[in-house]
Simulated assay, not measured.
Amino acid sequence: MGRNLIGGSRVAGVISRYWWLILLPALFAAYLALVSLLTELGKASDTDSGTSPYFESALTLAPWHSDAAASYASYLRAYAVTLPLDAEREALLERVLALYERAMEGRPLWPYYHLGAFDAEYLLNRSAESIQARFDRVTSLAPNERGLDRNLLELSLYSWNKLRSDQKQWVVLRLQKTQGTIRRDMLDIIKELKAYNLNLCTEMPWKLVRRACQ
């Protein structure tokens, strides 16, 4: 009986010293809930500023949070494109790219983050080598991801002169196979761009682009 009392007192002593461990799961859940709440508030806020206290707070609390980083990148991108071509716009787009890169650290195989980075690099007028490398990365991660089609094809058309010949061929094949509504929208973009880049008409099959290039 004495041994039982001694054992019981030891257990009680351990519990009294480490009782706070019992609260850790609840505290961690509250922490995640707070980060998610701040992220959702950031997503719901108007994109009328070059900063967001909600996203800033979320990323201060959880620098590893990929969704918060990518959502903040989308927020800043939406604001940056409303600005004139100046240093502020460029600085914001550089941050957009950095945020997508941060998001990729947590989810390196998620193609939509790479697509967001592709968009930022296009807007920053990055080199052909950078554009080609990003295109390769997106298409290698999701060669058959139809959800990417619209944005990837649109970015590819705007970046046409910086793509390699094999990448252009990939775009042509994708245009031929994609949904009719998306293909029509892409042809409308070609129609708008042909005045600035006639290569879109001369380097694609005439049967595909005839309506847009006539």
Rank of each mutant, 00 (worst) to 15 (best):
S140I: 15
R95M: 13
A80T: 08
N197M: 07
V172F: 00
A68D: 12
S57M: 11
V35R: 01
V209I: 05
N125S: 03
V171R: 00
Y122E: 11
G180P: 14
I189W: 02
S45A: 09
N151R: 07
L83I: 10
S165K: 02
L109K: 09
E129C: 07
A73H: 03
K177L: 04
R210Y: 11
G13M: 05
V171I: 10
V35C: 07
L21N: 02
A212I: 01
R77V: 15
A128C: 08
N197C: 07
C201D: 10
P111E: 00
M104N: 09
Q214N: 12
L83D: 10
A44Y: 08
E154S: 14
N199P: 14
P143Q: 04
P143N: 01
D166T: 05
R184E: 09
W110N: 13
Q176K: 09
A103K: 05
S66A: 06
F135R: 01
K191Y: 06
L141Y: 04
N144D: 14
E129V: 13
L193K: 03
M204R: 01
L24Y: 04
S52P: 13
D166K: 04
A12V: 13
Y18W: 07
A69S: 12
G8I: 09
F135G: 05
D46R: 03
L61G: 06
W19G: 11
L41M: 13
D185Y: 01
R95G: 12
N199V: 02
K194E: 09
D119I: 15
E94P: 13
Q167L: 05
L34G: 12
L157C: 12
